[in-house]
Design a protein around this nucleic acid. Structure first.
Length: 547
DNA sequence: CTGGGGAGGGGGCCC
DNA sequence: CGGGCCCCCTCCCCA
């Protein structure tokens, strides 16, 4: 009996072990099956996800393409029929965050001749090849999406990567190569379809004397500024820098002055003929730098921007103040205002650049012109000639415009005319001092060339001294220094009578008359007296103008 | 409310 | 470079 029980126990033990082995085997097999299925499932999921991404990308590309084509059609209607296109304008936008649709500043642009297709920076830009739709966008695509991008987007991604990998930010622009290929469009954020926000048409011109460098932009916040900078390191202002020869000699033909356009704000999607990026507003903020090769490239500049909203000073202020080429000292910026004019090419400016200023600028141009017509020393190459050609009203590119001159005169102060004439004639009429250095515009005599140089800024409008606190510019360093008291609040001139303080010494002197009761200026028509000549003049204008 | 005048701010320009 | 004067403009007060 005991033996029987023993056998049964052994048998049970063996069965238990066999069952355990079988169970383990079954578990292992189940796990294996699950893993296999899971792997297959994952593979299928991955493939599905990739397909989804690819489809989404294609869909977005199609949408962008449709939007783009629609914008192009709109633009074609607004773009001029023909434009010269022998030069390329490449823009450089530094600090631009892609996909954000704006530029952060410090952007530079430059012009390259047709043979050079090099970009120096990475930003969406289109080059007008004159082919009508030769527009190209540089896109940023997420790397993850790039992997799954379809054939249409892969090339785009490839291009972008190539450009970004370029440490020198140089890229080849394959303009006009988009034949049969949808305009490359990409975005770093699929959720936000990049809408063209800036429209700019840059037509580069060369060869013809009346070539026009045209910037037609419709974008928000446009303060278009033309910077005429010089490549040299000499930031000193002198007549030569203005294109003036020393004391009236014609400007050097081989000057290295460069017209510089500075793109200051706004997303710039360049567009060529028919290439349009809808922007939204007409208020352009497009200052862009153009850099020309040292080849003679006569060009006229016409900027169809909304400069009419600002005056010339403001215009020039923005021009000068934004430059990275400025030589900045302590609150002083000296930069260049130079127009390179070669031959008899008339440099034409948009009229609005000049006539908006309230007072001073008009005088400048008036003096310029008046002296030009009377001063035989003024050569036809002189800046005066250039200014004369700047039609203050019409945007025509013709040389001198009689209508423009009429209107030009209208904006000028008659007092300034008299003053200019008086200065010119008086200076030449026997000044006892050795003022043998004559102004080339008004014949006014000065004792040294530097004074002539400073004086001639009255005529040329050159203001090489820029305030670092604002965009004001001045022709004289002392004026700038005085102006900066506006920012510093410095009022070094205090009244001993009432402790009032003034930033101008003349203000103090004028104020002292309040205490003294001095009224040296008497009206000849009545018995009224005034402490200031200007008060008297206003009084006479208001009360005795008919006398 | 309006116009004249005073006061002051600021830039242009010459010495 | 500073001084000086000019001008224009704006703000404020007052009749």
């Amino acid at each position: 009996m005991a033996t029987c029980n023993s056998n049964v126990l052994v048998f049970h033990t063996q069965i238990a072990s066999v069952m355990e082995v079988l169970a383990n085997a079954a578990v292992a097999e189940i796990c294996k099956l699950v893993d296999d299925d899971y792997a297959v499932f994952r593979l299928e999921m991955t493939q599905s996800q990739k397909e989804n991404r690819a489809l989404r990308r294609k869909l977005q590309l199609l949408e962008l393409k449709v939007t783009r084509e629609r914008a192009e059609r709109t633009t074609r209607e607004r773009v001029l029929a023909s434009r010269p296109s022998s030069v390329k304008i490449l823009d450089r936008y530094r600090g631009m965050t892609r996909g954000e649709g704006h530029l952060t500043g410090g952007h530079r642009s430059f012009v390259k001749h047709a043979g050079h297709k090099t970009w120096r920076d990475d930003q969406p830009i289109a080059i007008d090849e004159g082919s009508g739709t030769s527009n190209q966008h540089v896109i940023v695509i997420e790397s993850a999406d790039a992997e799954a991008a379809g054939p249409g987007g892969s090339s785009l991604v490839k291009q972008e990567r190539t450009e970004e990998d370029d440490p020198q930010h140089s890229r080849d622009i394959q303009t006009g190569a988009a034949a049969g290929v949808a305009p490359p469009v990409a975005t770093d954020d699929l959720a936000t379809t990049p809408q063209p926000r800036t429209r700019r048409s840059i037509t580069e011109v060369s060869g013809t004397p009346k070539a026009i460098l045209k910037s037609e932009t419709d974008t928000e916040t446009l303060t278009v500024t033309h910077r005429l900078l010089r490549t040299g390191s000499d930031h000193r202002s002198d007549p030569e820098r203005l294109g003036l020869g020393p004391l009236g000699s014609p400007p050097a033909s081989g000057s290295e002055y460069l017209p510089v356009f500075h793109q200051s704000q706004g997303t710039v999607n360049s567009l060529g003929d028919g290439d349009t990026l809808d922007t939204g507003g007409d208020d352009l903020s497009c200052s862009y730098t153009t850099e020309t090769e040292p080849v003679n490239m006569p060009l006229g500049l016409e900027t169809q921007t909304d400069l009419s909203k600002g005056d010339w000073n403001q215009y020039s202020s923005s021009v000068y103040s934004e430059g990275c080429l400025d030589k900045k000292g302590e609150g002083l910026v000296v930069d260049e205002v130079t127009v390179k004019v070669e031959g008899d090419v008339p440099l034409t400016w948009n009229a609005d650049h000049h006539v908006g200023d309230g007072h001073s600028q008009g005088r400048d141009f008036l003096d310029y012109r008046e002296s030009f017509e009377t001063n035989p020393n003024v050569a036809t190459h002189s800046p005066l000639h250039m200014f004369r050609d700047r039609d203050p009203v019409s945007t025509s590119m013709g040389p001198s415009n009689s209508q423009g001159h009429i209107l030009f005169d209208q904006v000028l102060n008659s007092n300034d005319i008299a003053r200019a004439q008086a200065q010119g004639q008086g200076a030449t009429s026997g000044n006892s001092k050795e003022k043998r250095f004559l102004c080339m515009f008004c014949n006014k005599g000065f004792s040294c060339p530097q004074k002539v140089e400073i004086h001639q800024r009255v005529h040329t409008g050159e203001k090489p001294f820029s305030c670092t606190q604002c965009h004001m510019r001045f022709a004289e360093a002392g004026t700038l220094k005085r102006h900066q008291r506006v920012h510093t609040g410095e009022k070094p001139f205090s009244c001993p009578q009432c402790e009032k303080r003034f930033s101008h010494q003349h203000h103090l002197k004028r104020h002292l008359k309040v205490h003294t009761g001095e009224r040296p200026f008497a009206c000849t028509h009545c018995e009224k007296r005034f402490s200031e000549r200007s008060y008297l003049r206003i009084h006479q204008q208001k009360n005795h103008s008919t006398l």
